[in-house]
């Protein structure tokens, strides 16, 4: 596929996913809270007349298609509605929480990348059986540890006992406050990145061009750095791109343990209080970011690596 058509193709795919998401979310609202929105907003003491007035204001008394139209036109104006519970604009609330989440996500992603890939390289270079065993065991522990538990343990050791790091909160964006939540968030995924980069790198190291490079006198390490690394990076990069999306919305527990004012925690509490516009708004924003990042990575890879454009895609 020529590059431009490939990009167009990916962008179209992205659009389809987004429209699908928007429609599914609309149906969820429509089916889950048929007119209940007014009741949630006004509470138990509201009279039927007051409820009807508000339902009319919110357009809840209109037929499905009209409501869908209203919903789409609001989205087109970037209007995500008003939170039932907080009575503020959903867009504003999300913008309030997005920076903290992105800050934490990026930090976790950097930790994952550096330590995950480093770990994978180490295993590739040092083919020691003992190191392998230790690595498999510690990887399993990291994957199995519940995030909640890991967070509390780190808090206890580094903050309460040793007193070298803050317990929770952002501390007004103090970088020290970022360390524990970022490590907690990155732990499990670091093990996965390590495993994937090891296997991808090891497979690459078996290929004949590496043998040829070794034959020219390069050491294993030189061959890895100069040749194998770049070629083995695609699956890891894809994993990281997906991770970015997952971390954005999936940092909920970490955000709760560390009192981090992010999007995941906000969405969790919104769901708990059945604040439908807020939940739907943040899901929509998260899906959009996720889709855009993944499409971006696809396009960049298609551009770097012609095999992808040919349909062997790294993202399948």
């Amino acid at each position: 596929m020529p590059p431009n058509r490939f990009i167009l193709h990916r962008l179209l795919q992205m659009l389809v996913v987004l429209i699908g998401t928007i429609t599914v979310l609309f149906l969820v609202i429509y089916l889950m809270v048929p007119g209940d929105a007014a009741q949630v907003a006004l509470g138990d003491h509201a009279t039927p007349e007051a409820l009807d007035t508000l339902r009319h204001e919110l357009g809840l008394d209109q037929p499905l298609w009209n409501q869908y139209g209203i919903y789409l036109s609001r989205l087109a104006h970037l209007d995500l509605g008003t939170s039932y519970e907080l009575k503020r604009s959903v867009g504003g609330i999300i913008l309030d929480h997005l920076p903290a989440t992105i800050y934490l996500t990026v930090a976790a992603l950097i930790l994952e990348t550096v330590f995950g890939i480093g770990w994978g390289m180490l295993l590739t270079l040092r083919r020691s059986r003992r190191l392998r065993a230790i690595s498999v065991a510690s990887g399993a522990v990291l994957l199995a540890l519940p995030v909640f538990f890991l967070g509390l343990v780190l808090q206890y050791i580094f903050a309460s006992r040793l007193g070298i790091l803050p317990i929770s909160g952002t501390g007004g964006w103090n970088p020290l406050n970022l360390i524990l939540p970022a490590v907690t968030l990155a732990a499990a995924q670091t093990a996965i990145i390590a495993a994937v980069s090891r296997s991808s790198l090891s497979a690459e190291m078996e290929k004949s061009y590496i043998l040829a490079a070794r034959a020219r006198g390069l050491t294993r390490s030189q061959a890895m750095w100069r040749h194998a690394f770049r070629n083995s990076f695609a699956p890891v990069a894809t994993l990281l791109a997906i991770d970015f999306g997952t971390l954005l919305g999936g940092a909920m527990i970490t955000e709760i343990v560390f009192s981090w004012p992010g999007l995941g925690r906000m969405t969790y509490f919104a769901a708990e209080s059945r604040d439908v516009p807020l939940v739907v708004g943040s899901v929509l924003v998260l899906v959009t970011i996720f889709v855009i990042v993944n499409t971006g990575v696809d396009i960049i890879y298609g551009w770097l690596d012609p095999r992808v454009r040919a349909g062997e895609g790294v993202n399948g």
């Binding site: 808090q155 317990i167 709760i256």
Partner: peptide, 9 residues
Amino acid sequence: IPNPATAVS
């Protein structure tokens, strides 16, 4: 502070 155990710490 959403988590009570964190608050106690």
